[in-house]
Design a binder for these strands. Sequence first.
DNA 1: ACAATATAAAACAATCTTGTCCGAATATCC
DNA 2: GGATATTCGGACAAGATTGTTTTATATTGT
Lengths: 154, 154
Amino acid sequence: MILSRTSQYAVQALIYMATQPSETPVLNKDIAAQLGVPAPYLAKILQSLAKGNLLFSFRGRLGGFCLREEGEKITLMQILLLTEGPAFTQSCLLGLKKCSDETACPLHFRWLPVKKKIIDLLQETTLEKLAKAVESGKYRLADVPGKLFEQVKV
Amino acid sequence: MILSRTSQYAVQALIYMATQPSETPVLNKDIAAQLGVPAPYLAKILQSLAKGNLLFSFRGRLGGFCLREEGEKITLMQILLLTEGPAFTQSCLLGLKKCSDETACPLHFRWLPVKKKIIDLLQETTLEKLAKAVESGKYRLADVPGKLFEQVKV
DNA sequence: ACAATATAAAACAATCTTGTCCGAATATCC
DNA sequence: GGATATTCGGACAAGATTGTTTTATATTGT
């Protein structure tokens, strides 16, 4: 598995938030329900994203979470640096502590161009793009998405 | 982290084995010492690789482990399919159970070409190539490799 | 028989994921 | 202003998974 479950939930949640009107805070409870993920776990993830300055959080009635920046500015890389840790981009395939151009594992120079592709993807993919994809109805954010964009307003 | 520790140890161990003469079995104990990884844990990994038909194992005195095929035939993909599980190549970045061209997550088509690069790399990289890289002395298989290819025979 | 070795199983520890609980903050209603 | 409902915040623990160690057993060559 490339990403930890924590990272997967974080990305899913932020994409969902980017599909919602940005004026009113989104509830952890609602996000969890829409994605079908455990609410207590998601709450902890959202709190850490708020500490990482990616979200605003508001307590009390009418509280919830808001994206701190507009969706077009937030990249997947920003999210994953918070959830996977800052060493995320420098990790060695074989797990060596020190694996650089000078002291390299035998896979280092084969892995380098692929890693660059991954990093490029993560840096150029913004929440806005992903949110639009979901809003188009052609892509889904969760298994058995149920009524993510099929619900009728009452 | 891209690979589990189990996978990292497995790849390291098999590369090391490929650098050793193929006639005589290699001892788990020796591999563990050279790589600086816990021997009992490595033993479990090697056993599972033997069950997956990648290694021969011999019990008793003069026993040990041998590569089942020559190094040039064994690819990283073969190893990781055993240690990461057969679903390894189809995993969705966001963790969706069903994420195919028909039912896709918003990252699916962006991720696809990158995933292909990874799979290509894993399929075309053989133990032989990696073993030769290590034997050249320019690459290291473990942190603080100590005397991996510096030791003097007595 | 003995020593060296792999194999198996089980025990232990650490980490990751999930759930429960209660307190703190905030808006709304009276 | 005070009561109330709602929501985040944080502590704690249960469960699951992964990683690590220990112990015992079986096999093989000398």
